[in-house]
Design a protein around this nucleic acid. Structure first.
Lengths: 344, 344
DNA sequence: AATATTTGCGCAAACATTTGCGCAAATTAA
DNA sequence: TTAATTTGCGCAAATGTTTGCGCAAATATT
């Protein structure tokens, strides 16, 4: 495989000149430029990214740490991140943590060793000492949906608490009083905040919180299904359910349908995320929408911006350096899975 | 950031020794091993993968080229590929081609420049001269769902033609004679083979092929939806539909539901893939299942095996070197979207 | 006791780039 | 005409590893 030396030899110029032509990093006469381009063409030369990265510190690669790409929410967001990264010349290394702290740690080590220029964390767990390691090496990070104190990174959030509040409020307005909640795995995660918002709404209305109505899942379809079956088995089952994400809501819907009950006549379901499939299930799922595409684009833009800033090492105005924390609002999407409670 | 030199200095040994300890590539006395390990610990040393890759040619990275991760079929398969890659110490660079040959080409260049050790192609397009380039550089590839003549690579296939045949046969046995077909984009793709199988089954039964009943989609949900609306608008609409993948089948289901018709009473739908969501829609989707997880595992195993073989450069028995072509069979999964035609 | 083998480790080249420094030649200014 | 500046390019160091070769010391063989 041809290297820069071969090109230089064939074009009868120095390696330096070839490099400068490739990178457009200083003026080279038309004549030499042409000769070099011809030589590169003839030799089918492509610069070796490893050598480049080693010398320059720029690998044009970012790491994407997510729980599970087979969750449609993460698939959608990953797709957009890859798109926008590609537009900017970046490749992405895909890291599913599967909510396993050990796997997360291993992946972070790998990403650091591979000298990615930045890392995106969309993880329900994110051990914060893992993040500390990343920050030590001064590589830019964007953390999504987690607030970590004292962190030096841009953050993009969704107002989960408000979203949970709105979801519960909506159900209450439809006359429901006994509302189940299918939570996510962790206590320090978007799911917890969503549940908090839900509780707040109930309290405001003076509805007592019944611990029986809380079931914990893991954000996946099956766990939503299982959780719903538990709720249905209760002596006094809920008339409505708030699932902390759509995947679990879909599982819940399946459980209800399987049980021979009707949505929304017998029981209402509301989800969170607004993944494409929420429009596809029967009945279509009412849900709190996250602006997925905007979020994805912002994530990449923040990261790349931060990378640029760091690389030019110019101490631009302090303002530029301040870490941004952007909060997106959720939006209620009314579909067919919720209905005013029957007055018996 | 500490490098191997720092470690060597602190442990008072040569760089060589440190390297050998890290790679377990020759015996080092317990004493030195301990000193070096301590030094690595204290300095929080991690080998630089770029330098490693540059010198050794091994980057522990593979490229995954797929059309679109937001298609649940590819999401599932990617997830498994990532899992199995991780088990074997490989990271994966995610490349969505979006069925754009130009993007595919660019990504291949990127992967080659980044010196991935192998590439997995699950692409409906795959410009074969792109593949030629990869093979020139002698990097192992596994091609999925495409037969490319004279190709030097392992191939894993699904018997698409037989699958299409079985799907059509099933509908015919249910009494259907007017069966629509929602195809995929390309003419040289799994979709085309599935459609071929479908046609064959019809011909065997002496059913005339009506061009009006063929609509072309792009494997995505929306296109299935649109295609179905076109079929429904026909003066003489079909009583059953074969969609060449599940995503389009889901779109079709939605279109039918929206049209106020009933599945399977008014019209039957069969899909292809058996993605998880096919079990979730209403009605649940009858489909030709691909053994997704087996396929994914085999893909990675084949690739890694090929990489190993190539790296040790030992001309093992010719048998070992022969390229494998594995064909998986599909399986009919009967659910609720198909029904014996009503005899009017 | 002399020779051969094994054990344990280091030297330095090689991998393919980028980039600071500097040097001629050409051009401009004085 | 001379001095100063600009233009156009090359030298060689640096990036952080792996690995072929070889050298002493220790052990085994005759």
């Amino acid at each position: 495989m041809a290297n820069i030396k071969d090109v230089a030899k064939r074009a009868n110029v120095s390696i330096t000149t070839v490099s400068h032509i490739i990178n457009k990093t200083r003026y080279v006469s038309d004549e030499l430029t042409e000769r070099v381009n011809k030589a590169m063409e003839e030799l089918d030369y492509h610069p070796n990214s490893l050598a480049r990265g080693l010398r320059s510190g720029k690998t044009k690669t970012i790491g994407l740490v997510i729980p599970d790409i087979s969750n449609q929410f993460f698939a959608e967001i990953s797709r957009k991140i890859e798109d926008r990264g590609f537009e900017n010349g970046y490749s992405v290394i895909l890291c599913n943590t599967n909510d396993d702290p050990q796997k997360e740690k291993t992946y972070i080590d790998v990403l650091l060793a591979k000298k990615v220029e930045g890392i995106i964390f969309i993880s329900t767990i994110v051990e914060s000492n893992n993040l500390d390691r990343v920050m030590e090496f001064n590589i830019p990070i964007v953390v999504v949906d987690r607030i970590i104190k004292d962190i030096k990174s841009d953050t993009v959030l969704v107002d989960n608490s408000k979203g949970g509040y709105a979801a519960a409020k909506y159900l209450i307005e439809l006359g429901h009083r006994r509302i189940g909640c299918i939570e996510g795995p962790s206590l320090i995660t978007p799911s917890a905040q969503r549940a908090e918002g839900y509780k707040l709404a109930l309290q405001e209305e003076g509805i007592k919180i019944d611990p029986d109505l809380f079931v914990t899942g893991d954000f996946r379809y099956e766990s939503g299904n299982k959780a719903m079956r538990e709720l249905l088995a209760l002596p006094n089952p809920p008339t409505a359910v708030f699932a902390c994400n759509d995947m679990m809501a879909l599982g819940a819907i399946q459980a209800i349908n399987d049980n021979g009950m009707n949505i929304p006549d017998d029981i209402s379901v509301i989800g969170f995320d607004n993944i494409p499939f929420s429009e596809t299930v029967y009945p279509t799922l009412t849900t709190m929408a996250q602006p997925i595409y905007e979020i994805a684009n912002l994530i990449v833009d923040l990261l790349i911006n931060r990378i640029k800033l760091q690389q030019q090492r110019i101490r631009t105005s302090e303002q530029e350096l301040e870490y941004k924390h952007v909060v997106f609002e959720t939006k209620l999407i009314e579909r067919d899975s919720c209905k005013r409670i029957r007055e018996n």
